[in-house]
Structures are given as C-alpha cells and as structure tokens.
C-alpha cells in the first residue's frame, strides 16, 4: 500500500478545507458560503448515515429523509411547546428517530431487494403525509422554529461560526463512529450479510437482528442531522421528508462512492455545490442534473472515490 495516494490527498484537502472555511469566510466577508456549507455538512452527515446501511450493510433505503423530518419535528414541536433546551430536544430527536427506525426496519427487513427499496420509500411517504396532517404544527406549511436549541450557554447555536463547528464536530464524530462500527466484529458481520446472507445465516448469525441494529443506528444518526437541519433553517416542514430528498441522499452516497468512509461526504459536497452552481447558471438546473445522474450511473462506477482509486492504481 502506497503511503501517498491521490484519494488520500483529496480527502485531506477536503477535510482541511471544511475546517478552515470559517476563516476564509471571515477574511473575505463572504457569509453566504458559511450558510451553504453548514447545510452541506448537515446533509453530508445524513448521507454518511445512509451509507452505513446502504454501502456497508447492503440495505437500499429509499426513505432516509424521513429521519431528517423526524429529528427536525422533534426540535420544532418541543420548541413550539416551550421546551427550548437542546439537552432535551436532541435526545428526543435521536430517540424518536431510533424508534421509527426500529419499527420500519423490523417491517421492511422482512423483504429484500426491490421490495425493500419500495417499502422504505412508502413508509417515508407515510411520515410525510402524517406531518402534513399535523394541523397543530403547521401542517403542509411547516413549522417555524423561533428559537434555536439552547445548550445552557455552553454553545450558542445562533452564532454562525459556533453552529458551523458544532455541525462539523457532529459530522466528524459520526464518521469516527462509523469507522469504528465498520471495523468492529458487529460491522464485519453486517458486511458479511451484504455479501452473502445465506452463508452468514448458515454459520449461525441471526441475520435480521444484526441488520436491524445497523438500520436503527443509521436512522438515529440521520435524526441528529434532522435536528441540526431544523436549527439551521429555523424551520421544519413536511418537504424535508419528501421522497426526492431521500433520492438526493442516495445520489450523494453513490456519487461519492458507496461503502467508503469519506465518499458520502465528498458526494454531498460535490452534489450540493453542483446544484448551487447550476441553479445560478439557469433556473432549469434540473434539466442538466437529471441526465448527469443518468451518465454517472451508466459510466461512473464506484463514484468519486472509485475514480480516485483507479487513478492511484494507474
């Protein structure tokens, strides 16, 4: 194994860039880039959590945006009811996501393949409709979060830089956690199940139980992203759970490189920057984005990380 590779260099460059971004923003006075990248980091966190089940676990969830909504609504609804403390809001957001993941996972994991894709999609859409029906919490129009989560003076989420670093810390924390999970005995079993479920079962591993735990961990991580997202936009609406958002997350994972640690983060950065860039050129940016996706699927095997890896091998 070479000590210097292009993929390592690009990864280090990207991570350093993310850490140093507030400095750049301070120097140039470009506030917009901070707002944009806070969003990118939060969605990168969501994509990383999806990658845990999709890339490592082989479970193609098409309903991951549901957790963004559940985490967000947990924050928004508690804030609406007068509970402003982040010490309560965030644990509730995580717990709600975990419970939802447990129920949905237990049902969806009874099936596999395309069925699994369709079912996770359908359940996420159910969550979307339920949120639309919550008249008390804004229904279709969504819910404004008037006050960001309060962490009793420890960190001020209203401060742009502090919030940025909080999100970045969460992203790095989740990535470390995923790294540890993937290389643990548990993670190896889950990856074994991705490769050959029958064989793993024959060795004596309770396949569904392992997959379900992995599914719940992933959902809980994404719930964290949802809670952060609601704080970032000061707003939560059913639209965050809309199925195109789940699709976006999937695209980020594939684009960056499924089953790699930094791939989803890279995918999120590239995807959202591309979206931003194209939407500045033309109002009809999706007209380019759509066929681009098609081309990436047809020709870009392994995503960005795969391409960089091929570069390394010469």
């Amino acid at each position: 194994m070479k000590s210097f590779t292009v993929s390592k260099a690009v990864t280090a460059l990207m991570l350093a860039g993310l850490v140093l971004l507030p400095l750049y923003s301070q120097l140039t006075g470009n506030i917009f880039i901070m707002t944009l990248f806070t969003r990118i980091i939060i969605l990168a966190l969501a994509a990383a959590s999806l990658n845990l089940i999709m890339g490592f676990g082989g479970m193609m969830s098409f309903g991951h945006a549901a957790y963004l909504g559940i985490g967000g609504y947990a924050v928004g609804m508690l804030a609406q009811e007068g509970v402003g403390s982040g010490w309560i809001q965030f644990p509730v957001a995580l717990a709600a996501s975990a419970i939802y993941a447990l129920v949905i996972g237990a049902l969806s994991l009874r099936t596999r393949g395309v069925y699994f894709i369709m079912i996770t999609l359908a359940f996420a859409q159910m969550a979307y409709y339920v949120a639309s029906g919550l008249a008390r919490y804004g229904g279709d129009d969504g819910l404004t979060v008037y006050k960001r989560s309060d962490f009793s003076g420890l960190i001020n989420l209203g401060n742009r830089t502090q919030f940025y670093y909080l999100c970045l810390a969460c992203l790095f924390g989740v990535m470390v956690l995923i790294w540890r999970i993937v290389n643990s005995r548990f993670g190896l079993v889950v990856q074994g199940l991705r490769s050959n479920e029958q064989r793993m079962q024959a060795i004596g591993f309770p396949a569904k139980r392992y997959q379900l735990v992995c599914f719940v961990i992933s959902g809980t991580m994404c719930g964290l992203a949802g809670a952060l997202l609601a704080n970032n936009t000061d707003f939560v609406s059913p639209a965050v759970m809309y199925w195109t958002r789940s699709g976006d997350l999937m695209v980020m994972v594939i684009l960056g490189g499924m089953g790699t640690l930094v791939g989803p983060v890279m995918g999120a950065v590239v995807f959202l920057l591309l979206e931003e860039f194209l939407s500045q050129i033309t109002e009809y940016w999706a007209l380019i984005m759509g066929p681009l996706l098609l081309l990436i699927v047809l020709f870009g095997r392994g995503g960005i990380m795969g391409m960089l890896g091929r570069f390394d091998r010469g």
Partner: peptide, 25 residues
C-alpha cells in the same frame, strides 16, 4: 435499454435523474 442487467440501485438512481429531467422539461 442500457440499464438492463444492472443493479437495481442503478435503476433507481438513473430513473430518479429522469424524473428531475421530466419535471424540469
């Protein structure tokens, strides 16, 4: 036609791209 025989995930992504395209068109 170029997607036959590929992974289902590829189908999902490619046709997802097509939806974006059609909506925008």
């Amino acid at each position: 036609r170029h997607l036959y025989g590929r992974d289902h995930l590829d189908h999902v992504l490619a046709t997802f791209g097509l939806i974006l395209f059609f909506n925008e068109a």
